[in-house]
Design a protein around this nucleic acid. Sequence first.
DNA 1: AGTTCGCATGATAACGTTTTCAAAAGTCAG
DNA 2: CTGACTTTTGAAAACGTTATCATGCGAACT
Lengths: 358, 358
Amino acid sequence: MSEAIADDLTPAQGDLYSGPTMSRTFAKPASIADVARVAGVSVPTVSRVLTGAAKVSAERRERVQRAIVELGYRPNSAARALVSGKQTIIAVMTSDTTIYGYSATIEGIEVAAREAGFFVVISVIEFSDAAEVDRAVSLALGQPLAGIIVLKFDPAGVQILKSLPRDIPLVAVSGELDDSLSQAVLDEEAAGAEMTRYLLGLGHATVHHVSIPPSRKEDGRTIGWRKALAEAGAETPPIISASWAADSGVRIGLGLAARPDITAVFCGNDEVAMGVIAGVVDSGRRVPDDVSVVGFDDHPLSRIWRPGITTAMQDFGSLGKRAFSLLALQIEGEESPARSSERPPLVIRASAAPPPRR
Amino acid sequence: MSEAIADDLTPAQGDLYSGPTMSRTFAKPASIADVARVAGVSVPTVSRVLTGAAKVSAERRERVQRAIVELGYRPNSAARALVSGKQTIIAVMTSDTTIYGYSATIEGIEVAAREAGFFVVISVIEFSDAAEVDRAVSLALGQPLAGIIVLKFDPAGVQILKSLPRDIPLVAVSGELDDSLSQAVLDEEAAGAEMTRYLLGLGHATVHHVSIPPSRKEDGRTIGWRKALAEAGAETPPIISASWAADSGVRIGLGLAARPDITAVFCGNDEVAMGVIAGVVDSGRRVPDDVSVVGFDDHPLSRIWRPGITTAMQDFGSLGKRAFSLLALQIEGEESPARSSERPPLVIRASAAPPPRR
DNA sequence: AGTTCGCATGATAACGTTTTCAAAAGTCAG
DNA sequence: CTGACTTTTGAAAACGTTATCATGCGAACT
């Protein structure tokens, strides 16, 4: 008997040497049929061993497992996906992966997805015109996707969301709740308001705001800032817009430093705050003695920066995990859009202080 | 005739309402057979319109395209992959996505892959024990992968590489060439040596080195540093090891500042350099007046840091693109391992200066 | 001992495409 | 008007897996 098996050890390799020009051909991978033949059992039995869906006698299971390692067999997941109809890939669509908040969120999604047996594909979709986004999106939709998570932190994310069909599980991640979608959010509005109140509480007459590119007219941080100022009866100065580029904060800081009436600046994120601080310091004023500058996100370098940056701690890892949970709910057939919100706590460091006495 | 078609407009939906408990069921997606039925043509004809593989009369093509938009048909890529045997997913395996160099490389890979019609899945595999890595790797291998790119910047990457079978297209990305694999590298050794020579040229007696977790015994930056010191006949001080954690640099900086004989420090990357600078400044010494501190990578925040950090510019985006090109070569059946190397240029900013006069 | 039950097993269908291959329908030249 | 092409079309097979169903076998019960 062992001889009969030995005869069959090699899988079908008819096309292994398909021509003299192919110098190195990856051998055609073993299929479940090859395993069955080598193990001397039927195809479904191998499948049962693989999936554990039904009982198989110890002796046969043993034979199958030996055949599997011998042939280096790996299941073809395309065939699996086709027959089971179940997809295991989750697409994350975003305009950028190098910004800290973005990559940290993606890593959170990835970890949660992997634990649940899903894989994450990243689609970086830059914002150009709507047609371009459409094209990129439909390309991604060509994949066998179980669901999609969109990082809606900026205008590109909004555009992506617009291009997406609604017949597939979908979750948006952002800083503010809006439409009827399933959303994982960090409550930026509350945190922005708290940060503003903190600065006012230090004695500043008002707080200036440097905003990052918002996903809609105004992001949650800005709204919270505006509300807190209104509550306190403080004047609302015009918003200063920064870009994602590192230098943009520096230029703004330079401009801010020229105005001695400005004593407190709330920046849309920590990177911008670092730039603003650099600009202010470059023009000879001190932070926080002359001007207080605070950020948002708690970037890993914020605690290292000198002065350490007072900020709101966004737990992007948890945000990503919550986004995945919401998506998993939909994949399982849950009907109604769900929301998950968390409120970022303040992290007090050294970059904010009472205003200078005049 | 139009009526006959109208009767058939809806795709098969037998299981659309599969039970009273399912309140919202995603309709079973239209298949190519549904499209064929609605358009009144055969299944292969629809396929031909889709792939453009053969000519179809204008009138039928028109009918098919109308049916496609009407049904919102999207091809099932699992079925496609199954029959064609071609895979379109590339896995990037890495231990981290939030470190700047890592995420920038991944973005470069992603952009190049998308242009070539591939998708990128990210596998974050933390380094614990070898068995754990094995498990994570074989899980990822369950996907229908066209190829794999491993970010071999650290010990985790090395372990991942060890767990990977060699019967699948594979490229490693790192800072130094070693074994027979296809590799995309940045020539860290040359850049490390150049940086060290630069510091010696400013008049420093020797240069201390703070290293980040290396992928093997010593990374390219360290080797270049060692060689340049030897060339110049300078003493080689013991290496100081930092971790990826932001604080670790600060602690090291504190220690370094206590030793007045140390005037030049070459850090393994910019984040660590920022930490070291913070630590040095915290203990009352000045950078670069008392101590010169330089980094590596050209992190986007390095130009904003005060003082601006002198560093070596690593083009991670191009690194990622080169890695993908190498992989594409293998996927097309190229036999021999290929290499691609690039040399990072120095970026002179303000954090290094001649040593203080004694 | 005969019948029924439970369980392991294998044959076969199904999933949604693309790829042959053969047939049908034109098209052109003689 | 016929024969030989070329082009367009459809039928059927194939891809590798899981799901369904029937079968055979031994054990347990009457």
